[in-house]
Design a binder for these strands. Structure first.
Length: 287
DNA sequence: AGTTCCCTGAGG
DNA sequence: CCTCAGGGAACT
């Protein structure tokens, strides 16, 4: 569930910890029981993601972390000429630890620092997460990033409208498609559609310019407010400092099936849309 | 464009 | 026990 606001919050908390630190040692414990074409370049992703351009994780030793960034839901540590990419998927998490402290059961990567004597652990209970090292040069064209759409907080209303018009399918599914916009997931798609008064099953291409504008603004508003709140901590999301987000308190439809719509008081409905649960108010959200 | 699968802990 | 959660790849 880490979506754009959660990954952004992780990036910010991580930045305060590791920016400028030199990686002394790298220890990888790739998840077992996976297709065992495991090289030391990372894991996760499709078959094409294991391309020749991947770099061994051990190459990170001795490098200094000079940027902590985000692209969509991907977290990117830039180290010298290398980029260490993470996708947290459902349960990826970072822990700031000390050498000698017992390592958690689901820790798959450890970056060890000497000054200060600390460790960054990446853990992932469900093993869906992705870790990969790439050359920094040409990073935007790497398999993990190249098909991502624009950042929702950067895209203009004009471009948003044009891209929406070019899509077939339901607006909810289009919002979830990372090649349309990078970083929107289930929670924020539902919240943005509610805020814009648009039914999740409305065909994307059918939206008028004014309604598309409202959706564009709602996506920006929901995402930026969620970032300010440190993300949504339903279940177990925490940032790299272990801090919880608070945006779950501002959810108006997500996870509120049967509760009264904050707008009209009618019950919030839940329906499976594109294999994911969608939450909406059938009265306030028009097709 | 919709469905299945991956994976595991939490909750019924 | 069983079911559910869900991002995204790989199916159909």
């Amino acid at each position: 569930m880490p979506e754009l606001p959660e990954v952004e919050s992780v990036a910010r908390s991580l930045r305060r910890r590791v920016l400028g630190l030199r990686i002394a040692e790298v220890e990888a414990f790739p998840p077992k029981g996976k297709p065992v074409r495991r090289r030391l370049t990372g894991w996760g992703g499709g078959r094409e993601a294991r391309s020749a351009a991947a770099v061994p994780l051990s190459a990170l030793a001795g490098k200094t972390i000079d940027k902590v960034g985000r692209r969509g839901k991907n977290l990117i540590l830039e180290c010298g000429g290398l980029a260490l990419l993470f996708h947290l998927k459902m349960t990826g998490r970072f822990l700031w630890s000390r050498p000698g402290e017992p390592r958690g059961r689901h820790v798959h990567l450890v970056l060890r620092f000497r000054n200060p004597e600390r460790e960054l652990h990446f853990e992932d209970v469900r093993k869906f997460g992705l870790v990969r090292c790439r050359p920094l040069d040409g990073l935007a064209a790497c398999p993990e990033l190249r098909s991502l759409g624009p950042e929702p907080l950067d895209v203009s209303a004009d471009v948003f409208f044009l891209r929406l018009k070019a899509r077939r399918g339901r607006v909810k599914s289009v919002l979830l498609d990372q090649s349309f916009l990078a970083g929107v997931g289930n929670i924020y798609a539902d919240e943005a559609l509610f805020a814009a008064g648009i039914h999740p099953l409305a065909p994307a291409a059918s939206l008028s310019r004014p309604r598309a504008d409202r959706l564009w603004a709602a996506v920006r508003d929901v995402l930026s407010r969620a970032i300010r709140a440190g993300g949504s901590s339903i279940r177990d999301y925490r940032d790299a400092d272990g801090e919880l987000g608070s945006f779950q308190d501002e959810h108006r439809v997500y996870g509120r099936e049967g509760e009264p719509c904050p707008n009209c008081g009618g019950p919030i409905r839940r329906a499976v849309i594109g294999g994911r649960s969608g939450h909406f108010c059938p009265r306030c959200q028009k097709r």
